Amino acid sequence: MSTVECRYGNVILKERKLFFIFTVLSILMPMISLTGLLKPSCEALGFWFQRSGATTVVFAIFAELKAANMLSVFKPAGMVNRSFHSTRDKYIKQIKIYNYIALFLIVLGTVIWGYGDLILKMA
């Protein structure tokens, strides 16, 4: 397979790597905040956890942008080569799942951001 034929897959693999990095960062932010790392001494842990929701949302939005970039590979503006359909069949379901994961993390981060202190009080 030549370099031209792998173009679609290469773009997807590059964006997928960045998607995973942003997804992991999005998940780690609330977990790290619960340890109290970098928490000011005058700040309650609940408020620190609540603030981590903002960083969760930011990283989740970046992850969603990478999922959207992967999906945009399958909306070419011109003619496509032979590898287009096989690449689309190989990756389209994965990319849709990545998009749902990113959207879930955005919603989760928003809930933490808005109600994180209350969630910790109830726990």
Rank of each mutant, 00 (worst) to 15 (best):
I95P: 03
G114Q: 13
Y100H: 09
T110S: 15
K17L: 11
P40Y: 01
D117H: 10
A102M: 09
L34D: 02
F19K: 09
T23F: 12
S86V: 15
Q94D: 14
I12L: 00
V4T: 12
A67G: 06
I119F: 02
F22Y: 15
T23W: 09
M29H: 02
N69M: 02
T87Y: 02
Y91A: 01
S72Y: 03
G109F: 08
P40N: 07
C42D: 12
G53W: 05
A67H: 06
E43P: 01
Y100Q: 08
I112S: 08
A63K: 05
T23A: 12
I92Q: 12
A68N: 14
F59M: 13
I92W: 05
L120K: 02
T3P: 00
I95T: 09
V58W: 00
I21S: 03
L108S: 15
V57I: 05
G109N: 10
I119Q: 08
E43Q: 09
T56E: 14
L103Q: 13
F84A: 01
T3H: 05
K14Y: 04
M79S: 09
F62L: 15
G53Q: 06
V4P: 00
M122A: 14
S41P: 01
S26V: 07
L28R: 10
L71G: 09
I21R: 07
K14L: 07
G46R: 08
I92K: 12
T35R: 02
F59T: 05
A44K: 12
A44Y: 13
Q50M: 14
A68I: 13
Y8L: 01
A77D: 11
Q94A: 13
L120M: 13
V80N: 07
